[in-house]
């Protein structure tokens, strides 16, 4: 198989994937024409709420699942035509624990090395290097079932790195970790991305994580990419600060919206949760005008904030709903699915 030197390290083109839902139900569309490209040597983030299609994308790119239609290339290799070639080129850290709890940390790493055809000596050297780097050297000879959640996750990443893959998949690497372990993991991923010459595909539903780690990211919603760019680009495309004003009485939200909408410096005025959300080029200067308009309309205000655009704002702008609301909706759908 030829491997082009240049070109994207990862490319997904119009991926479609549906799952049968059982008799009488329409199939569930997980991916609905998803496309993106990631340049070599970068951390590329797939950001979206649970159920957006991130994990399905990772499964297709890592040869675990096949797309109904569309094509995908990993390290220049066609995933559909040469899955074995892809498997040699990638490291895979699933959303769930990939380390065997019955084996020790060292044994997990050595097995990964063996499966990738590394000789015993090279495998041991690499394993020890990784154990050192991830601060696991002291626990190398302990069974993984005695590790903490954060240690297991670090070992999982080390297992994925064992054979120096050209592309590493990190599917929600910090989900379920406490804030301290998460911060440590972020530092590890940053160091790793700088030290190893490889491309990382990171999926996450933490806005902060995508913002911090990804050089470029694609926002995924409903099985499609709705926005793509660097976090800074995506935020600056929004042109302006977010202004959030919450009236004391929820029933008067429409009135508050009308009052803020009447001020010419504001655009994209809408209601998000219990607050009026608007955008202005200079939020600090615009806020007093909003408050004045509300006072004139006789709407008492409970709180008012100005913030630089966040990825949550980007998400809102592209999908029409806040990230938290999307997560909640998915959780509800899951619960109903279980009940039904």
């Amino acid at each position: 198989m030829s491997t082009p030197r240049s070109g994207p390290a990862l490319a997904a083109r119009d991926l479609v994937k549906t799952y049968p839902q059982g008799r009488g139900k329409p199939p569930l569309t997980a991916l609905d024409g998803l496309s993106f490209e990631a340049a070599p040597g970068t951390v590329f983030g797939l950001l979206g709420p649970n159920g957006a299609g991130k994990s399905t994308t990772v499964k297709i790119l890592s040869t675990l699942a096949r797309a109904d239609s569309g094509r995908a290339f990993v390290a220049g290799i066609d995933v559909g035509a040469d899955p074995a070639g892809v498997r040699r080129a990638i490291g895979f850290v699933a959303q769930k624990q990939v380390s065997d709890p019955m084996d020790t940390g060292l044994e997990n790493l050595l097995l990964a090395g063996r499966l990738h055809g590394m000789g015993a000596r090279r495998a041991r050297e690499r394993a020890e290097e990784l154990l050192d780097r991830f601060g696991l050297a002291g626990a190398a000879r302990r069974q993984v079932k005695t590790y903490s959640g954060g240690m297991i996750r670090k070992l999982d990443v080390a297992v994925g790195l064992m054979h120096r893959p050209r592309v590493l998949f990190l599917d929600e690497p910090t989900t379920g970790l406490d804030p301290e372990a998460r911060a440590e993991m972020w530092a590890e991923i940053e160091r790793m991305a700088a030290g190893e010459r490889m491309t990382v595909l990171l999926t996450t539903h933490y806005l902060e994580e995508a913002d911090r780690l990804a050089a470029r990211l694609a926002i995924v919603d409903g099985g499609r990419v709705v926005a793509e760019g660097s976090p800074e680009q995506l935020k600056s495309e929004l042109r302006g600060d977010a202004v959030l004003v919450q009236p004391r009485d929820r029933a008067r939200l429409p009135e508050a919206r009308a009052a803020v909408g009447g001020v010419s410096v504001f655009r994209e005025v809408g209601i998000v949760g219990r607050a009026v959300h608007a955008r202005a080029d200079d939020g600090g200067a615009a806020l007093p005008q909003a408050l004045a308009a509300l006072e004139a309309a006789g709407v008492p205000v409970a709180s008012a904030t100005v913030s630089r655009p966040s990825l949550d704002d980007v998400y809102l702008a592209h999908t029409g709903r806040s990230f938290a609301a999307a997560e909640e909706r998915h959780a509800r759908a899951e619960a109903e699915g279980v009940a039904a």
């Binding site: 040869t63 074995a84 895979f92 699933a94 990939v98 990738h116 999982d156």
Partner: peptide, 14 residues
Amino acid sequence: MERGVMDRFLTSPA
């Protein structure tokens, strides 16, 4: 399969 161990093996050259 309940863990990610099976998926890890299936995405390896094994």
